[in-house]
């Protein structure tokens, strides 16, 4: 019986857009609280700044990318330097995206807590699904 793999989660950090902060926060919640033993991560910029070891990340782990806007930097960067993500999440697909305020690129407001929770739970569900369908 093969061991279930950890699932990689790579978040955009979007310093200049509120979706980046939401993506980062939701990813951290999954990594630290929801699925700490089932997940791994790597800083997205390491794909460009690092070496072959870092670039093998999405080859070693089935990987979920979490992007804060439609530019999809995490998905594009992961595919460009490592491997095509198994799941690509785009925060713009969530109806609450349009309610985000510009200042939330630094500090998430209480009004966005539901969005963070929804995104966290969706990431966790994808983690479970990827592990359950692993062959």
């Amino acid at each position: 019986m093969s061991e279930l793999p950890k699932v990689g989660i790579i978040s955009c950090s979007g310093e200049d857009c509120p979706g980046g902060n939401i993506s980062r926060e939701a990813t951290l919640r999954v990594l630290h609280n929801l699925r700490p033993d089932e997940t791994a991560t790597i800083c997205l910029p390491l794909f460009l700044a690092g070496g072959e070891g870092e670039r093998g990340f999405a080859k070693r782990f089935p990987t979920i990318t979490v992007d804060g806007c439609g530019k999809m930097c995490a998905a594009i960067g992961t595919a460009r330097f490592s491997n095509k993500p198994a799941v690509e999440i785009n925060l713009e697909d969530y109806p609450d995206f349009i309610s985000l305020k510009d200042e939330e690129k630094w500090h998430i407001q209480e009004s966005s807590s539901d969005l963070v929770e929804k995104l966290s739970n969706d990431i966790a569900s994808h983690v479970d699904e990827l592990r359950n369908t692993w062959e």
């Binding site: 955009c12 310093e15 997205l44 460009l48 530019k71």
Partner: peptide, 13 residues
Amino acid sequence: YRTICLPLLVAGD
């Protein structure tokens, strides 16, 4: 001072 998204550089923007 302003900032830009670091991931844009990874994506080659």
